[in-house]
Computed example of a mutant assay.
Amino acid sequence: MTDTAIGNATAPDLSKLSQLRLGLLWASSLAPLAFVALLLALRWPQYWLWINFEQTPMTSLEVAVMASTAMLALLAGSRAWLYGRPHAQTWWLLAAAFLFFALDDRFALHERLRDRFLAPHGVSVPLLPWVSPGDFVVMLYAAIGLLFLPRVWRMLGAHAGARLRLGLGLAVAVVAVSLDTIDLGLLPVQWQRLEQTIEECLELAAQVLFLQSFLCALIGDVAAAHAQVPAAGSAVGTRAAGVS
């Protein structure tokens, strides 16, 4: 089956598709920003209470963003599979990864692993003396992601906006992971709170950027496919052909 097989009359209005993309990008940027600002304001001066800990509104927001990212990747992979396009398996792997991250955040899986098994037994990374025992699990996630990165980068090659947001998301995630490895016991309490708040906000920013990257790629694939399918005798087909 090809995109043409769904019928020329179903080709979307590409100008509206562009407006949809822009609207979703703005919404996915401003809504989390406003939500975090509200959390900080409602608990001020104890700004960290709804940000730093597990089972807080911040956790719920992060889980929602990552679950949405997983659904976008699942949708993109299913579309690629249905139309015989490449990279379906890559999209599905990304969907599984972000679903796992959402579950990890919701149920504090790596924190439980650290606190119940790794830290009590003093398990650490000898080459990283500043990392407290058990606090290397997130770094392991990051290392696996970096090994998978070239495959994802090639998949997004046709979408400059998707690549840009993926690169920015990776840069922000690296900073967040680096902050996560700091032994907070070495810092005064007020600096611990500030460091954890910054770390959580950076994690959310990276997650939003990954969501937007997948969004750009999916909408870009739809637009590219239909821009090359003129609908004979229809205004939609004329407009699509003009855009291509």
Rank of each mutant, 00 (worst) to 15 (best):
residue 2 T to L: 08
residue 2 T to M: 04
residue 7 G to V: 05
residue 10 T to V: 09
residue 15 S to T: 15
residue 16 K to L: 15
residue 17 L to G: 09
residue 19 Q to P: 11
residue 27 A to H: 09
residue 27 A to V: 07
residue 31 A to C: 13
residue 33 L to N: 03
residue 35 F to T: 06
residue 38 L to C: 11
residue 39 L to I: 02
residue 51 I to A: 03
residue 53 F to D: 00
residue 54 E to W: 02
residue 54 E to I: 02
residue 62 E to P: 00
residue 62 E to I: 10
residue 64 A to N: 13
residue 71 M to Q: 10
residue 73 A to N: 09
residue 80 A to V: 05
residue 86 P to W: 13
residue 87 H to E: 01
residue 95 A to Q: 05
residue 100 F to E: 05
residue 102 A to G: 01
residue 103 L to D: 03
residue 107 F to T: 04
residue 112 R to E: 03
residue 122 G to I: 07
residue 122 G to T: 13
residue 123 V to W: 12
residue 127 L to D: 02
residue 131 V to R: 02
residue 132 S to N: 07
residue 143 A to C: 09
residue 145 G to R: 14
residue 147 L to T: 00
residue 148 F to I: 12
residue 149 L to V: 09
residue 150 P to K: 07
residue 156 L to R: 13
residue 160 A to V: 08
residue 161 G to Y: 04
residue 162 A to Q: 15
residue 165 R to K: 13
residue 166 L to I: 06
residue 166 L to S: 00
residue 175 V to N: 11
residue 181 T to Y: 02
residue 181 T to H: 03
residue 184 L to Y: 03
residue 192 Q to C: 00
residue 205 A to L: 09
residue 206 A to C: 11
residue 209 L to P: 06
residue 213 S to I: 09
residue 227 A to K: 09
residue 228 Q to S: 10
residue 229 V to H: 04
residue 230 P to L: 06
residue 235 A to T: 13
residue 237 G to N: 02
residue 238 T to L: 08
residue 240 A to W: 11
